[in-house]
Every structure is written in C-alpha cells, then in structure tokens.
Amino acid sequence: MTTKQQLREGLITNNPVLVQQIGMCATMAITTSLFNGIGMGLSVLIILTCCNVVISAIRKIIPNEIRLAIFVVVIAGFVTIVDLLLQAFVPALSESLGVFIPLIVVNCIIIGRAEAFCQHEPVGLSFKDGIFQGLGYTCVLIIMCLFREFFGKGAFGGGLINTVNGVIGTGNGVQIFPAKYGALILTLPVGGFMCLGALIAVMQYALRRSAEKKEAQEKAEREAADAAEVKEAAE
C-alpha cells in the first residue's frame, strides 16, 4: 500500500469517524471550541501512532489469547504518559478535556487499528497508518468545532485566538457576529449529535456519488469496448 493510498484512506475513504463510525463519544462531547478540537485530535494522533509502532514491533511475541489485554495495557500506558505531560505543560487543555483524556484508552479507534492493522503489518506501515488515521480524526474534529462554534456562538478559534493575557486555552476567539444571533443549541449535547449525524450523512452521500460515477464510467467504457468489438467482428 503506497503512502498516498494510505493518506487517502485515512482522510477520506476509511476515515475513522465518518466511514468506520467508531470513536464517536469524544467527537461529540468536546467539539465546542477549536482549542479542544485541535488538542484532542493531536493527542489521539500521538497516542495512536506510538501505540501502533509499539504493538507492531512486538506483534510476533504477543500470544494470541491475551492480545487484547496487552493492547489495552500498552494503550493505557501511553494515555497516562500523555495525560501527565498535558497536566504539567498544557494544563488548560487538561482541564477543558477533563475525563475524556483518560477515556482515550477505550477509544475504539486505537484498539480497532491495533486489532485490524498493526497485528499483521510491519512497523513502518503501522507508523504511517497511525499518522494518517489520526489526521483523519483531527480533520473531523476541526470541521465539527468550526461548524459548532461559528453557527452556535458566532465565534472562531475559541481558546486559540484572542486569548486572555496570552494564556492558551482562554478567551472566546474572534467574534464574527454577535453571539445572540447564533443557534446556541449547537453548543449543547443536542448539537453534537446532530452535527455528527449530518457530517456522516454528507460523507455517505459523497462516497456513494463517487462510487456511482465510477460505476457509470466503467459501464460506459465497457459498452464502448463491446461496441468496438462488435464493429470489428462485423468488418
């Protein structure tokens, strides 16, 4: 599998949230500000890549019966490391994500990739897979944050732009239109459910359209080839 293929898979055709439809809890819960989205996305990307590399490296010596237990231990280890590092160096992110950082342990994406991919593939491919799937996840988080922040509060870049005293994680970002004209409901749990539902629907529509187009193209090519054959046979 080439790098370009893997990138396309991670971002679009096998996107963890929109196509595989796993790892949705955190996606809906924390996408209320751009700071949260980027922070969570990068954390998951780092943890996913590290876990992929380690699990792929020890894949030959893991006994099959206890592989899930070992995956969980390795993932919990990396999650705790990232959690401690965030608490020490980016406390604002640790506070706003709250209990969802330790919950990355049970994020289906990481266990899912370990089970489906890293068990069988070498370290290099697993490393790239981690990065691209993590990128796909981060992109979805960013899109949801942008949508929910803009239409819900009329703001952009909460926690990253216009911070209070330059402390990252504070402030409400740039106010593009007054907050009272926004649909506040989008910043509530309801908004999370609906946004994600709409995004997955858009992705399904896009994938189906592209599959239909491809099929129609192939059909046209086949018919043209058949017609040329018939013409040749008639001559």
Binding site: P63, I66, I70, V73, V74, A76, T80, I81
Partner: peptide, 16 residues
C-alpha cells in the same frame, strides 16, 4: 507475558 508488559509499562509511567 502479560505481567512483563504491565511491569514495563508501570516502570515507564513511574519515570514520567
């Protein structure tokens, strides 16, 4: 094996 993996993980965590 499970004990070994857990022990190594715990050691690394202790360090961090």
């Amino acid at each position: 094996v499970l004990f070994a993996v857990t022990a190594i993980t715990a050691l690394v965590l202790g360090l961090v």
